[in-house]
Simulated scan of single mutants.
Amino acid sequence: MFDAQIGNEGAAAAVDLNAYFERIGYDGPCEPTMATLCAITRLHPDAIPFENLDVLLGRGISLAPADVAAKLITAGRGGYCYEQNGLLKRSLEGVGFQVQGLIARVQWMQPKGAPPRPRSHMVLGVTLEGETWLVDAGFGGCVLTAPLRLFSDAVQETPHGRFRIVDVQTGGVVERQVQADLSGHWSPLYQVAQGAWTDIDYEQVNYFTYTHPSSHFTWSMTVGRTTATARYALKNNRFTQRDVTGALVEQRDLTVEELEATLRDVIGLPVGAGWRPVLEKVVAWGTAV
């Protein structure tokens, strides 16, 4: 039976909530209510983009709380799931929520019948009002902008489309598969595994993610931001914009200059002078990677 028990291991290191709230633009009450959880999960993906630029720049990805805060809060950067959800976990715990880290098996955009991928995606389980809520600020162009009931099979509405979570079996193990409604088709995002993970458990999968040749983060650029009115995504130099229903608004390939401007003006990243060689490489890779 799927373990629905979510505890609270406590924040390993306190987060500066005032700085985090300022970063995401949250000015509501600091109390563990559903209204607070919904506001934070809506604002975080708008303010803190998904991005893997540091991997392509040859930098290691530290999960130390101070390093994550310095990058995602102070420096105005983004990050991928371990950074994003690590920061979100500590912030929610600081507010007073009960939070546990979970692990998921990504299936997004995989062909039907593809072999199972290893569990590598960090998500969160929040216990509130007698239920476990799935929270995820680190899934790129299809990031959640509202908490979802992890153990409900019902269709769940969010500010950016409809989702549902259903039981599936992989290797005889029951997992909860998160699906998004894409133009009337239920497309799987990932499967959430049984059991909670402690912070140290993510160190090995994080190292694999930013170093191993089979990890797409080591040989392609993935960037995403979700605002109140749109979802923006970059896969190398292919720019995609969708509205809140998921309908395609624009898709085109960018030049180096356009890519730099999009990262700065649309995604909201502080583009560094040393990024230019990587952006040139990304454009050369194109969408064939």
Rank of each mutant, 00 (worst) to 15 (best):
R225E: 14
A230F: 08
A35L: 10
D16L: 06
A261I: 03
K235I: 10
W197F: 04
V205H: 00
P270Q: 07
T222R: 10
G94V: 08
F139A: 09
M34T: 04
F208Y: 04
L259R: 01
L150N: 06
D54V: 04
A13M: 08
C142V: 05
C81Q: 14
I200K: 06
L56S: 14
R225S: 13
G272I: 05
K281M: 11
D136S: 08
I73L: 10
Q5M: 10
N52I: 02
R117T: 13
E250Y: 03
Q5V: 07
R176H: 06
Q98A: 14
D54H: 05
S220W: 06
N52D: 11
D265R: 04
A288D: 08
A288K: 02
V249S: 13
P188Q: 07
L182M: 05
V266Y: 10
E131F: 05
L254V: 06
T229E: 15
G96A: 07
Y207H: 04
L72Y: 05
D46Y: 05
R242M: 02
G195S: 04
P118N: 09
D167T: 03
S187P: 04
G140L: 08
A247T: 10
D201P: 09
V95H: 05
V174R: 13
E250C: 14
P147N: 07
G246A: 10
Q241V: 09
G184V: 01
I200C: 12
G140C: 10
P147H: 06
V126T: 00
L72P: 15
E83N: 02
A228H: 05
V15E: 12
P159T: 06
A12T: 00
V256P: 12
C142M: 09
F217R: 03
M221E: 03
Y26C: 15
Q84L: 12
R242L: 06
R264I: 01
D201I: 00
A4L: 02
D167M: 03
N18R: 07
I73F: 02
R231P: 01
V95W: 04
W197D: 01
G246C: 11
P188K: 02
D167L: 03
R149G: 15
V95A: 08
T240W: 04
D181N: 12
V168A: 11
D153Y: 01
P115Q: 12
I267L: 06
D181S: 08
G86A: 08
T132I: 11
P213N: 02
T255L: 13
H44R: 15
A19G: 12
L269R: 08
G184T: 01
D167W: 02
T74E: 15
V168M: 09
S152C: 10
D153F: 01
E258M: 06
G79D: 09
R264K: 11
N18Q: 10
T158R: 00
Q110W: 05
L189E: 00
Q98P: 09
H121R: 05
Y210V: 00
F208T: 04
Q100L: 00
V126Q: 00
E203P: 00
T158V: 02
